[in-house]
Computed example of a mutant assay.
Amino acid sequence: MTEVFDPHGIEQAVFVIGERHASLDEPWRAERRARLIHVNEGVLTVHTESGRWVVPPARALWIVANTLYCLHATRPVHLYSLYVATDSASDPAADPAPDAEPLPAQSGALVPDALVQALLATAADLPHDRPPGEPARRLLQVLLDRVADLPAAPLGLNWPDDPRAQRIAEALSANPAQSLVLEELAAAAGVTARTAARLFAKETGQTFGQWRQQLRLLAALEHLGAGESVTQVALEVGYSDVSSFIAVFRDAFGDTPARYFR
Rank of each mutant, 00 (worst) to 15 (best):
V4S: 03
D6S: 09
F15V: 09
I17Q: 08
G18F: 10
H21Y: 01
S23T: 10
D25Y: 15
E26W: 04
L36D: 11
V39T: 12
V43C: 05
H47I: 06
W53C: 00
A58H: 13
R59M: 13
L61S: 05
Y69V: 11
Y69H: 07
L71R: 04
L71E: 04
T74Q: 06
R75A: 06
S88R: 12
S90M: 14
A93V: 05
A94C: 04
A97W: 00
D99R: 10
E101G: 15
L103F: 05
L103A: 10
A105R: 13
P112G: 02
A114D: 11
L120G: 07
A121K: 03
A123W: 01
L126S: 08
L126A: 09
H128D: 07
R137D: 15
V142T: 06
V142G: 05
L144S: 03
A148C: 11
P154N: 06
D162T: 14
R164D: 09
Q178S: 15
V181A: 14
E183K: 14
E184V: 12
A187N: 04
A189H: 04
T192L: 03
A196L: 08
R198W: 08
L199F: 15
L199Y: 13
Q213E: 10
L224R: 01
G227R: 01
T231S: 13
T231Q: 13
L235I: 07
S244G: 12
F245C: 00
F253Y: 15
R259N: 14
R262Y: 11
